[in-house]
């Protein structure tokens, strides 16, 4: 009885070990199963999903116009204080004073890509970009001003 159990254990053990080795052996002989993504080399073909949240950007059209009215909804929505909107008073052609953004300051180093600012924006002025290569040598470079120099508010956006 003891011997039967003893050799039964040995048989089962060796069998289980061989079954395990079969799995690794299979992958060793099937190199097409390799799943490595050679990241910096596949940059050309690497396509991020369009919903991927990499950083906040402010799209500008060809006339260097953006849609940000400076309402600060995103600034309030942001949990981390990532966004700081600096406004200025601008005198329009008809003489009225209007609040316009001077600088849309975005601290990428504080951002957690939670998307709440994009959701909060009433005029769809900011979107999430798919760029994810953010590493820089100096942390200060992560402070970005999203509106381009001399850009204007798009016509019809209030």
């Amino acid at each position: 009885m003891f011997l039967k159990e003893y050799f039964g254990t040995i048989y089962k053990s060796i069998k289980s070990l061989l079954v395990g080795m079969k799995v690794t052996g299979y992958y060793f002989t099937h190199l097409d199963e390799i799943k490595t993504e050679e990241y910096p080399d596949n940059r050309a073909t690497l396509k991020m999903f369009d919903r991927f949240r990499g950083e906040v950007v402010m799209p500008h059209d060809d006339n260097n116009e953006h849609r940000c009215t400076g309402c600060q909804a995103c600034e309030i929505a942001c949990p981390n204080g990532t966004i700081k909107i600096i406004t200025k008073q601008e005198i329009l052609e008809d003489g009225k004073k209007k609040k316009r953004i001077d600088a849309f300051v975005y601290h990428l180093d504080l951002c957690t890509m939670c998307n709440l600012c994009v959701v909060a924006c009433p005029s769809d002025a900011i979107v999430m970009a798919q760029n994810f290569e953010h590493s820089v040598y100096d942390k200060k470079q992560l402070k970005k001003i999203l509106n381009q120099p001399d850009s204007k508010l798009m016509q019809g956006v209030e």
Binding site: M48, F49, R51, F52, R53, T112, M113, C114, N115, L116, V119, M128
Partner: peptide
């Protein structure tokens, strides 16, 4: 993770929940 990334926009910290539902419709 790819499903998460495609629908929620992030792989690990999805942040896809808002009070009242989900942030976007599914992809």
């Amino acid at each position: 993770m790819e499903i998460m990334e495609e629908t929620c926009g992030a792989r690990l910290t999805q942040n896809f929940m808002v009070p009242g539902g989900v942030m976007y419709d599914i992809h």
